[in-house]
Design a binder for these strands. Sequence first.
DNA 1: CTGAAAGCGCTTACAG
DNA 2: CTGAAAGCGCTTACAG
Lengths: 336, 336
Amino acid sequence: MPITIYDIAKAAGVSIATVSRVFNQAENVKPQTRKKVLKIADEMGYHPHVYAQGLASKKKNRIVMLAPVMSNYFFTEVLRGIQDSLAEEHFELNIVNIGRKKDAFKLVEETIKKRWAEGYLLVSLHFSEKELKLLKRHNIPVCLVDDFSNSFDSVSFNNEEGAYLATKYLISKGNRQIAVLSANANSIPIRDRLKGYRRALDEFEIPYDENLIITGDSMERDGFTELSGYQAMNKILNLDPIPDAVFCTSDTKAVGAQKALKEHGVHLPLISFDNLTIAEYIGLSTVNQPMYDMGFRATNKLIQRLHNPDLRISNEVHHPELVIRSSSEKLKEVTS
Amino acid sequence: MPITIYDIAKAAGVSIATVSRVFNQAENVKPQTRKKVLKIADEMGYHPHVYAQGLASKKKNRIVMLAPVMSNYFFTEVLRGIQDSLAEEHFELNIVNIGRKKDAFKLVEETIKKRWAEGYLLVSLHFSEKELKLLKRHNIPVCLVDDFSNSFDSVSFNNEEGAYLATKYLISKGNRQIAVLSANANSIPIRDRLKGYRRALDEFEIPYDENLIITGDSMERDGFTELSGYQAMNKILNLDPIPDAVFCTSDTKAVGAQKALKEHGVHLPLISFDNLTIAEYIGLSTVNQPMYDMGFRATNKLIQRLHNPDLRISNEVHHPELVIRSSSEKLKEVTS
DNA sequence: CTGAAAGCGCTTACAG
DNA sequence: CTGAAAGCGCTTACAG
């Protein structure tokens, strides 16, 4: 039913090879012929069938992005970076939602096996080195985003350092008892951020107190939600004594935490993590994570590898930057 | 280089037809044969080539979502609905970013012509009936999300009604001078929302004053950004007299607007639009828009049409619901 | 500058 | 339950 290259060739009185050349920007077609083919193709509403093209040419001009969760701001910014980077190249983007299931790895492997794309971007998927080795044997270009490995190119973020900076800042302002608004303790970013927190404590010889590591009850999205932040902050406010300050592991959680603070009429100096757009508008002190850049850079890296498969593996680590706004201030002395 | 169906057939001592049957869940394969093929395929790391499958079978099991902007919460929620709906079916999702360019329509048409997918979801793309007619002639299943047309199935939202409800509520609380924090005046949602605003004014015989329709200077994302809301609210606060209340055309803008209010130490009753997750946490009174549901329902509708192309065109309109929180309160009387 | 022909990796009647 | 063969709609040396 749909128009094929044969229909166009017949209507234009040329061979299908010529039609194909016209659509592949080949230079060696008589301008007159080209014009005629284009005209007829336009009239008949023809467009090459991508699957047939892909099969015959063995080119796909497509990269696939795999991610565990799509509906959060982090993902959204990374995606924006990817798309902006791709816009300059001749590639299409495919997005596959992996979800948080146990068999995430299987799903990723299945997807890669299907060979839809020439390259794959694995975002926030923290597989073991063993699993990554399994992926490696499919011998396909992959770049990790927000993860690190020796087996593949990667663009990641120094979470440990970010938490260290935030905690150190709070300490430098005279806070000693610093609670952590944490999330799923098994998630890699949380593990790294807790390490940074401890390093700062150690440096100032403040004893580590595990009772100050507080997690909300909701574990949706690994606990990186407003609700979970709200729950956790309520727990913190029930601590006795109430800690001096809070290191919050994400801006999203901080939004929930601030609601709890407001309801209790309490202020606690707080620094969070990510620097989402909203942070600026609600006065959140936070650790800036260049999500957009990470997506952009990772895509560049992947495309480079497509062009040159023998490139040495390269790991790019982005560094944190502390952005201080009002949430980290101590309460102003109230002169009564 | 990659393993093909021939390699598996040879290794298993069967024909490629049999291998194909095994991978297509055909029932008529001897269990023994099936097991053997599966084992060998697994060992050799084989997976059917999707392009070849698509070409030979003329099935794609793929739907494409086309959207103008991806990095905002609205899109993100719609996407979540789409994915949840798709998860139950046997379809893959492809996302194509159309951007805000002039030639958005051309891009959409190009994409549809490529015939990647059996069905297309057009999200927040407001084309004219004339343009939609052009799309129609490609004779392909399409469902519009956040838009309405007689030519295609659609799932949309009653923006006019939402603005009407919000404005009416503000009036009912005794506010007369109600400013609008607006955005790109040419965007369809803004046009509809302004209509609803006027209808409420008319009903209460409040004269319409175009000086109360305020837009920020930044027109990124049609002005639906925190920055734009911040700018617009600053303008409103310079009005003389300051209006009684504000109808804000999106939660995102409201976040910016609240910052401006805070900086000026002023409170103005405010209702906004969308009911993003964050609205609950910052006490925003707002018009709930069921974004997730709209994505979910639209996908269902599209898949139904795939199964049954002769279905009558169906337009589903979702209705607004006012969610009142603290931002719309009048300032409490200060007893001094 | 153009065409005939082989081939890309599958599916699917058709026949047995 | 299985195989031989045609066909899906293209691209691309190869030859002219």
